[in-house]
Design a protein around this nucleic acid. Structure first.
Lengths: 193, 193, 193, 193
DNA sequence: TATGAATGAGCGTTCATTCAT
DNA sequence: CATGAATGAACGCTCATTCAT
């Protein structure tokens, strides 16, 4: 399944042939169909697995007590670092997730749900911060969550897959550096210190 | 070509059959090949066209004189509004561009270049703002540009294609509202007024 | 039509597209169909024309009075020289005729008839030579005619189209040299002086 | 593969559809592509196989010690008989080989090489005969070899495929008769006893 | 006469899936 | 559990031919 994941990520869903996967795995074509129901099924399994792992990372990342703005920024930074580290060591999974899954409807769906779950996790935290008076209650929390996840997705895409401007130096950064800079932008924007 | 664009966007590159396109266009299969060299070629043409249009929007959007922070925010808001309006009236193009093009290498390439060009446009503006002393020269301008484009891509994706959390209310916003809120986040972050 | 002939000869019937022919001729596709009924028709016309010309050469080549063996050899040599000269200045036609016409039945047929006509011309001469007592009447005249035409076809094929062993030096010979050597072989065989 | 060979020979390369071959073989279309890479590939395999067989025949046919002219003629007759017998029981192969392969370049190439190899085999024998003083050393050995192969190709073409003059009675001959008459012509020419 | 856009039947090839062993 | 030959529906593309202008 790691083989399939890698090939789906690298070549895309459609360009990945079952014959490629089994050849790389060193088994016969028929064997594939003993393990997996179909090509779509294995892709789905992969995405589902990924979703679980990703949500674990988010869930564990956001353990923190209320506190000062400083605390909040640090908490966010920690979560982002966790996410980026996860992405770094699961780059094929992320490539699949962020790449869109080749347009196969059930896969698209599963990916969309994963993204939604991520967004929701951030939304809960924004809401909590509002309750705690750390963020103004006039803002559109959902939209802010969407913006944050956009940020995360964009950073990972550019960091690991080289999309975006070439030689922007982003590829050389560590997960921690990215987390720090992203968190600063998240809370203070361009004008932030 | 609009037909092809729509189907590529809606169904994905692979799921779109030439026979679908010509059926919708009401011509024979062979006619397609009189106008376009191949399936890949038409997709490429579409993407190239889109790139040109998009860069036009960006180029026109960023006409402005230096000034106060207020000016800068308004200028950015104007650009974002322009982009969002363009996306709204070219949703299929944006869907294709943001969807990744189905993993066909030359198309992927063209899309990546489009994104890079966008990022570069924003980069130039950040640099100008730094020269003018409106932004601190300690920041990583490239990374900031990447973050901003990530924001834009994320917003459009969620606004027009419903990716992200469902019923977040984002779909109901106007281009101008989105531009305003996104610009505020861009400059002031979560903590911004 | 010369264009079509050249392309048929060089690329083969199937590999030659109408679009190639008209492109080289500098006219539109539709124009072709005003001049010729179909692709097959033009090939047929070409072959028919060629047959006529070839038979003319044979007919003119065999004008001679009876005489000694010496006369006979010289007459044959003259005919062969005529044929080889014709082949040299009609190489595309010969290529088409000797190449088999790409397996299209009516063309195959026309070519076969051309060959048969050639064979028949030689047969008449062998018969006359037998009547004149210059050749023994025990031989199978038809078979001898077939052998002679085989010789001619083989020589032309190797001389002009390079088939057969490479660098055999045959390409450098003149039509007259070929005629002389071929005639000697025709009458005296390998052991001939 | 025999099926493909027969159809290629009978109908020509282009007129032979994969669907014809598989229909005759009683398998599905996809099955063809399990066994062969492509239509061109199978034709190439066929031709290569044929070349090997043909060269075997030639190699085995020319085992003989030097000797008198009588010996030489008999040896040649034996070789020719071997070739004609082979052609008779491999008529489709010969049809493909002598027909030119439909103008597909790699196939044309392979056929040309086969012919060249044949010519070379005869060339070696002529050279040996010259060394042994059985043939004058003034003759152009390459050209003579070319003539002999031309003879062989012409005879087979007319014998098995009916090209050439109709009802010439050649079709009724046996391989041995052909070999005998062809060998006589080879050594003594038209004027030979 | 000439154009060139349009036609559409037909072909080679691919590849996910099945199944007898 | 595993094999790998077999399947067949489906697709992209070609190209000789037509026809309105």
């Amino acid at each position: 399944m790691e083989i399939a994941l890698r090939r789906f990520a690298k070549d895309g869903y459609h360009a990945t042939k079952i014959s490629d996967i089994v050849a790389e795995a060193g088994v016969a074509q028929g064997t594939f169909y003993w393990h997996f129901k179909s090509k779509e099924a294995i892709a789905l399994e992969i995405v589902e697995d990924g979703r679980r792992q990703l949500l674990d990372v988010i869930a564990q990342g956001y353990r923190r007590e209320a506190g000062t703005v400083q605390d909040m920024v640090q908490a966010s930074e920690a979560l982002l670092a966790g996410l980026f580290r996860f992405a770094e060591s699961n780059r094929y999974l992320m490539e699949l997730l962020l790449g869109g899954g080749g347009g196969i409807e059930p896969i698209r769906q599963a990916i969309a749900e994963t993204r939604a779950a991520m967004e929701n996790a951030f939304l809960q935290n924004i809401r909590r911060a509002i309750e705690l008076g750390m963020l103004p209650d006039t803002i559109d929390a959902e939209f802010r969550a969407a913006l944050i996840v956009s940020l995360i997705e964009g950073v990972i895409t550019r960091w690991l897959f080289g999309l975006g401007a070439p030689d922007s130096g982003i590829a050389a950064k560590t997960a921690e550096q990215l987390a720090s800079e992203t968190a600063r932008f998240e809370f203070f924007g361009l004008l932030g210190i």
